[in-house]
């Protein structure tokens, strides 16, 4: 099973983001999601929103994020995927944004506020640039909607484990297994599960049902310590690295 960690770009600053991406790659990440800080992230829970808020408070700019990724993406094997609001993409011009993302070395985009219904034009543009557009399916998605969404999906399918926002949860919804089973009959794309995943036993529980796990808030939470004290950077990076390794091992064994 693939292990896919998530971090927000620019928290606490972009040089640390670059180091963190390398640390995650070295710890066994098979793909890394890079969240673009956004002022109004409605799909995100408090931990990731706080991370975005910290980055924006330091005025992190899109251009600088792309520059940082351009530097890192060549140095690591794991593909990088950008998690970005359509508000940001649209503001840049969708064509310009996709080109910049591609040039920086992103392999694909996850656009949480561009649901399948609205995605057809954007999916075509992404295909033209040979970028993956990862689509999300929720526990509230009826099967006929899922079929519509999957029409535009490439890369993998992001299966939302629980109704609600991102964030650590102890239990995964009982319907999740059913949703994964149903999706398996509708697509040959890998199924990755995210929202609420934070521990190796949850990952073990998904074995044989999913092809990947996405872990965001549990990792991002560890960055909170750096907000006030940058002298801890080395220690926090090591901590995140070893946490990521535990999760990667759980996914890979």
């Amino acid at each position: 099973m693939a292990f896919m960690p998530f971090i927000a770009a620019g928290d606490p600053d972009l040089p640390t983001t670059a180091r963190l991406l390398k640390e995650l790659a070295a710890s066994g990440a098979d793909l890394i999601e890079v969240g673009f800080p956004y002022s109004d992230p409605i799909a995100d829970g408090p931990v990731i929103q706080a991370s975005y808020t910290r980055a924006l408070a330091k005025h992190v700019k899109l251009k600088e994020i792309f520059a940082t990724i351009t530097g890192v993406s060549r140095e690591i094997q794991a593909p990088l995927v950008s998690m970005v609001s359509y508000a940001i993409i649209f503001r840049q011009g969708i064509d310009a944004f996709v080109q910049e993302a591609k040039a920086a070395g992103f392999a694909g985009l996850i656009v949480p506020d561009l649901p399948g219904d609205e995605a057809s034009g954007f999916a075509a543009l992404m295909a033209k640039h040979q970028m993956d557009l990862i689509q999300l399916v929720a526990p509230t998605t009826p099967p006929d909607r899922a079929a519509k969404i999957l029409k535009h999906a490439t890369g993998f399918v992001y299966c939302i484990a629980v109704a609600g926002t991102t964030g650590v949860r102890k239990e995964l919804a009982p319907q999740l297994a059913e949703m994964l089973k149903s999706l398996r009959t509708q697509t040959t794309l890998p199924l990755a599960v995210g929202f609420g995943i934070s521990a190796p036993d949850q990952i073990h529980h998904l074995k044989g049902k999913a092809d990947g796990v996405i872990v965001g808030s549990a990792i991002v939470k560890l960055l909170e310590n750096l907000a006030s004290d940058s002298s801890k950077t080395d220690a926090v990076l090591r901590e995140i690295g070893s946490f990521a390794k535990t999760l990667a091992d759980a996914a890979h064994t």
Binding site: A43, D113, P139, T140, R145
Partner: peptide, 21 residues
């Protein structure tokens, strides 16, 4: 589809789409 000319529509997480429909 909720279009007022070019404006409107739905740009929300998938989790809300079924409820909006």
């Amino acid at each position: 589809e909720g279009r007022f000319g070019e404006f409107g529509r739905r740009f929300v997480p998938e989790t809300l789409m079924h409820a909006l429909e």
